[in-house]
């Protein structure tokens, strides 16, 4: 016998699973075909590439890990490279947790769920989670994230032997999909102006910090550009406040209309 709440839980888990047929999932799968080509080119075995996909589950970290292996880096050096590049996961997870947790979700469940948070799941969830009832959000997220990780890992295993024969122009184009997909989908799913400010500041800041500190460029860019975006928004918001309330309302409806169109 199933209760109504169990049925609702299954429904939202399934709704999450259906996300495997979404554009973000499709693009991630294609990007991983590109990654598989890179892994095979680097001389990794099929089982290593599959294991890495499931257990690391962060594309930039995996690319850096393989680059370290190729450079014959020591284990501590590889760890350092990968871990420095992955600090970005902290704010991403910290920002997503308040969105997906229910009213009494245990911390252990959240720790388990956090493994499946990477950019695609982040963008997908941020875009859709507000339309899911609060107590079903974790189920919705897990339905999507578990299906995505399982599918992508299976795809890596399935295409590994074929990708070696990919022409370089196709492999290069596949690699290009990921950044362009992140760029457009994050912009489209932005909740507020800060996200757009942060995006622009981050894009411009990256080459700058790459010149100054190539090993920490992503981290520095994130902190500096993110803080600038935050401060800029506060400044603009404060200046707008004394102006007529009508202006504020107009701004609000404009943003809401924007969001409606994007979803």
């Amino acid at each position: 016998m199933t209760t109504a709440s169990e049925r609702a839980g299954a429904y939202w888990f399934l709704q999450g699973m259906r996300g495997i047929f979404s554009l973000p999932a499709l693009i991630l799968i294609t990007s991983f075909v590109g990654f598989t080509g890179f892994a095979s080119e680097a001389g990794l075995l099929l089982e290593h590439a599959v294991f890495m996909t499931g257990i690391v589950w962060a594309l930039p970290a995996m690319v850096l890990l393989i680059s370290s292996i190729l450079a014959n880096a020591s284990l501590p050096a590889a760890f350092l490279t990968v871990t420095l590049s992955s600090i970005r996961l902290l704010p991403m997870v910290a920002a997503l947790i308040p969105e997906i947790r229910g009213r009494k979700t245990s911390i252990w469940v959240l720790l388990f769920a956090s493994h499946f948070i990477a950019v695609t799941a982040w963008v997908f969830t941020m875009e859709r989670i507000r339309s899911v009832p609060v107590d079903q959000r974790l189920r919705f997220f897990l339905g999507f994230a578990l299906t995505l990780t399982t599918t992508v890992t299976a795809v890596v295993a399935a295409v590994f032997v074929f990708v070696e024969k990919l022409p370089p122009i196709v492999a290069g184009t596949l690699f290009f999909l990921t950044p362009i997909y992140f760029l457009t989908s994050i912009w489209a799913s932005a909740r507020d102006r800060i996200a757009h400010y942060a995006m622009i500041a981050g894009l411009l800041g990256a080459p700058l910090f790459h010149l100054i500190a190539p090993d920490f460029d992503i981290l520095y860019t994130g902190i500096v550009a993110g803080t600038l975006a935050f401060a800029f928004d506060r400044l603009v918001g404060r200046r707008r406040k004394p102006a007529a309330d009508a202006e504020e309302t107009g701004q609000g409806t404009g943003a809401a209309a924007d969001e409606g169109r994007d979803r």
Partner: peptide, 24 residues
Amino acid sequence: VRAVATALVAAVIAKLILYPSGAL
């Protein structure tokens, strides 16, 4: 935190385009 997370991803995007690895 969300602004920092977004800027971090923007930096990853810029790096994937400007300083790619592999066939790109």
